[in-house]
């Protein structure tokens, strides 16, 4: 039995992630094949023979019975091997060129999904957070000596990610274009960052209220519970610190280092601020 995904929405992630996914599928197989409830066997070898994220023309995952083909038991992440039997090859004319893209004003992918951009961005933002952020953070937390060290690493990682997002001029111009920011709003205006934060909150369906939005700064009010609880699959206590560091870094390149982002508490709310700040200990 084999399964050709050809490509999937995660094809840009890279095959290490697929390695983990395939490991998870193996676990599912093992649990299901156990026969009696609770009995786990390892009857099936799952191999990710090809991965589009590695440059192959498509993704191919092959499952073969170990006893049939004399295969060894696979280790925890040993799923990028080759199948015992030769795999089929999809003729080029039947391959999917783009795994995901925009068509008819909608997001479409090789699974046959066609969703509004808003729907898909929310899904990607949520799931993307889980796979790309939460899981690595779990690994980092294990590695760090203590909570303070973990928080220090977390802030550095997020701040750098934020800064890097808008180093390139085309990234800044692209955001302006996407948000349709009028030219009157210049290169050193906090509202550019404010609008970007609003767009993210909107995509993630976090209700928010503008309290200030002018050339002197931006203030956005959110409820603490909705802000921190939006990724139900992987709630993370440090989500506030992560976003604060990321948005602060992004603000320095998207607008200028004169402007910073910080998050204040106000009863049950957070106030997300974009304002002028001098921070001698800035990351």
């Amino acid at each position: 039995m084999e399964k050709e995904l050809d490509s999937c929405p995660w094809d840009i992630v890279g095959s290490e992630m697929c390695n983990m996914t395939t490991a998870m599928f193996t676990a599912n197989f093992d649990i299901a094949a156990g026969g009696e409830h609770g009995e786990i066997t390892n009857d099936v070898a799952l191999n990710m023979c090809e991965a589009r994220g590695c440059g192959n023309p498509h993704c191919r995952v092959v499952a073969e019975r170990r006893d049939t083909f004399g295969l060894e038991k696979q280790g925890w992440l040993d799923h990028r091997g080759q199948a015992f039997l030769p795999v089929h090859d999809t003729p080029p004319e039947r391959r999917v060129k783009h795994a995901q893209g925009l068509r008819n004003g909608q997001y479409t992918n090789a699974f046959g999904e066609e969703q509004s951009l808003e729907w898909q961005y929310n899904w990607v933002a949520q799931m993307g957070w889980v796979w790309s952020i939460s899981f690595p953070l779990i690994a980092i937390r294990d590695m760090a000596d203590d909570d303070d060290e973990f928080e220090r690493i977390l802030k550095i990682v997020f701040a750098t990610a934020g800064k890097n997002a808008f180093i390139d001029p085309f990234a800044r111009e692209g955001l302006r274009n996407w948000l349709d920011i009028p030219r009157e709003i210049g290169d050193n205006d906090p509202r550019v960052m404010g609008a970007y934060i609003q767009a993210i909150l909107g995509c993630q369906l976090v209700p928010h209220e503008l309290e200030a939005f002018d050339a002197y700064g931006v203030e956005i009010r959110v409820d603490q519970d909705t802000f921190t609880g939006r990724f139900e699959m992987a709630p993370l206590d440090e989500i506030t610190i992560g976003y604060e560091a990321q948005w602060n870094g992004a603000c320095h390149t998207l607008v200028s280092p004169e402007w910073s982002v910080w998050i204040d508490e106000d009863d049950d709310d957070f106030i997300i601020n974009v304002g002028r700040k001098v921070d001698d200990r800035a990351l």
Binding site: R191, L210, E211, A212, F213, D214, Y216, G217, E219
Partner: peptide, 11 residues
């Protein structure tokens, strides 16, 4: 004119 918007801190 009538109905011009009044803004406080841009809001």
């Amino acid at each position: 004119a009538q109905n011009e918007i009044i803004r406080k801190r841009g809001i």
